[in-house]
Design a protein around this nucleic acid. Structure first.
Lengths: 217, 217
DNA sequence: ATATTATTCAAGTAATCGCTTGAGGGATTG
DNA sequence: CAATCCCTCAAGCGATTACTTGAATAATAT
């Protein structure tokens, strides 16, 4: 009787176990931007391929990721959109409840920049009041981006500032609340004398809120 | 630079680590019904007090629970309502993504019973169409219950069926979607020839959805 | 003060985790 | 076919986790 309850609770715990490692959190954050083959994930996380593969097996056993084979590559992606919600909530609770996390987040993101939320961005986009820039790597833009956004990866931003239509405020967005790309993008744009905001959340949250998303360039 | 990102991700992971153990999941589920002293938690989980205390320290370090001293007892409770949301989402994702969890849930809860959701219950309560029974232990009812519910703990239900006003459908609820009390309650009530439903969620989700809750008997 | 009750701490042990290294398996290329 | 590329598996390691036992601490009761 109680053994069955233990089995159920252990099952829930196994999913949490998947999230209980910093590298796997980064991995899921990356996969939230679109599926990828193992070697790319390993490179992005700066870990060995064997180590990465093992983390992926743990996540697969936890039911958080799924894989498909294409030729001699294996592509991994999130098992479901609900995984994004879980990850987002985990990070929000961590930020809310842990002073360590808040300190680390500030150290990683740098001081505050002006922010804008999803609904406000949607409204201003509708009215054509802002330029929206996706500062993630181009491949992630191709996999999916906010409809109407320009793709200017962070490391090209300074050189391509001229592409931003003049006379409008600029909004930058990236992978999510705890990704540093948009913050850095905003600083670069502001250094050029333009007013810039960061979208608080990233593409996954935007998609999940039901706002319009496009694929391909 | 990357070291800072590692620190942030590890911080997120530490919170997940708190959830990454079956006993701690049960513990949080219990605390979602109201705060309790250590010895009671240990008894409910059928673990030793020392072991329980150590799990509670892990959860405190993860920022998921908080404690207060009253005389020579220490009462533990969830650190925030958001912890309930996180726990609920974790279990929903686990149920959704893991066949093991679905099998364990079925083994624990037994076959399906008729269900009713929050909004429907709220509407029917409003119209006085149903009797609502809280089948959790009485102390949990006292700590907080759905406004208008009767308290009949599961182990007294069979003997007290007569207290249920005649001529109405009965709805039973308990701690949550993965608590077996309500299922068992529905079976007992149906065995007496009454029509009975189970509220899909429990009190924590009801409260969090903004529906009316009362305290004390 | 002493005894009692409730909780935490410290030490020890078996099991698990995270990583490395090197071998093995699947699929494409030459 | 061999050679190559991509990924997984197996073994081994140091560190961490979950649990037990017994001692230490904190507040109350006698």
């Amino acid at each position: 009787m109680s053994a069955v309850k233990v089995r159920l609770s252990d099952g829930f715990a196994r999913v949490a176990q998947g999230l209980a490692n910093g590298r796997r959190i980064e991995l899921l954050d990356l996969l939230a931007q679109g599926e990828r083959p193992v070697d790319e994930i390993a490179r992005a996380l700066e870990i060995t391929i064997a180590n990465c593969s093992q983390h992926l097996q743990v996540l697969r056993r936890a039911g958080l990721v799924a894989s498909r084979r294409d030729g001699n590559r294996v592509w991994y992606g999130l098992a479901s959109e609900t995984v994004v919600q879980l990850l987002t909530m985990l990070r929000d609770v961590a930020f809310d409840r842990s002073a360590d996390v808040r300190a680390a987040a500030e150290a990683y993101l740098g001081g505050p920049v002006e922010e804008i939320d999803r609904d406000e961005l949607a409204a201003r986009l509708e009215r054509g009041e802002v330029v929206l820039v996706d500062v993630r790597p181009h491949r992630e833009f191709v996999a999916g981006h906010i409809t109407g956004a320009l793709s200017i990866p962070l490391d090209e931003l300074e050189a391509r500032l001229i592409e931003l239509p003049a006379g409008l405020d600029v909004v930058a967005y990236c992978r999510g609340r705890f990704c540093a790309f948009a913050e850095q993008g905003v600083r670069i744009i502001e250094a050029a004398g333009r007013r810039a905001f960061r979208l608080v959340e990233g593409l996954p949250e935007w998609r999940q809120a039901g706002h319009p998303v496009s694929s391909a360039s």
